[in-house]
């Protein structure tokens, strides 16, 4: 509970900091532009282009994040991952990591609880990596700014390599633990 309050306070402080920083950059920009009027056109053009591209998708992205945070609670992740077995577990790890929202530090305690419950290491690695870099709202922003080809290629490659990483870390840790027992 206390953590929650502190987090809220930090958040408010963070927003205030962001706003101050925004104001400062705005002033710097205005000063720069008044000294270099010939740059005005290029800067305002870029500003407007990126702003309009962002504002077209930002509300939708925020709604997706809200929906995922309400409809995919932590309990659901726990339920699915604690008893997943076989190679299916790795894929489930990716899906369960991609769906919920929230910063990465929310995922660590979840992952550690799952490991204690006996979840596969590969599944947990896949889960954490997917949580970090395969979020559906995030992929939407990537799609908007970098295009379908870039987004899809990076997504597919990331999934392939995350699976490989999960399996190899699992092998490595289990192999070391086994050797330790023999010695």
């Amino acid at each position: 509970m206390k953590d929650h309050i502190r987090e809220k306070g930090n958040k408010r402080k963070g927003i205030r900091q962001d706003t101050v920083l925004l104001g400062a950059t705005l002033i710097i920009m205005l000063i720069l532009l008044s000294f270099f009027p010939e740059k005005q056109e290029a800067v305002t053009k870029a500003l407007w282009k990126f702003f309009s591209e962002m504002i077209l998708v930002l509300p939708a992205v925020m709604i997706l994040m809200g929906l995922f945070s309400v409809f995919v609670p932590k309990e659901m992740v726990m339920k699915y991952l604690s008893k997943a077995a076989g190679i299916k577990a790795v894929f489930l790890g990716i899906i369960m990591g991609a769906l919920p929202t929230g910063p990465l530090y929310v995922a660590f305690p979840l992952a550690s609880a799952l490991l204690k419950k006996g979840a596969r290491i590969s599944c947990i690695i896949a889960f954490l990596s997917a949580w970090a870099c395969i979020k559906i709202p995030q992929e939407m922003v990537e799609l908007q700014f970098l295009g379908p080809k870039f987004m899809a290629t990076r997504l597919i490659l990331t999934i392939i390599f995350v699976i490989m990483m999960g399996l190899s870390i699992e092998r490595l840790i289990e192999w070391r633990d086994k050797n330790k027992r023999i010695l």
Binding site: I15, T19, T44, L47, M54, I63, G66, L67, S69
Partner: peptide, 25 residues
């Protein structure tokens, strides 16, 4: 979910404007 969305929109908006200005520069 919609209330969360609205809140996070306003939370992230200053940061987004900031990065867009930086991109412009």
């Amino acid at each position: 979910a919609l209330i969360i969305a609205l809140k996070s929109f306003f939370n992230i908006f200053p940061t987004i404007l900031l990065i867009i200005i930086l991109i412009g520069l």
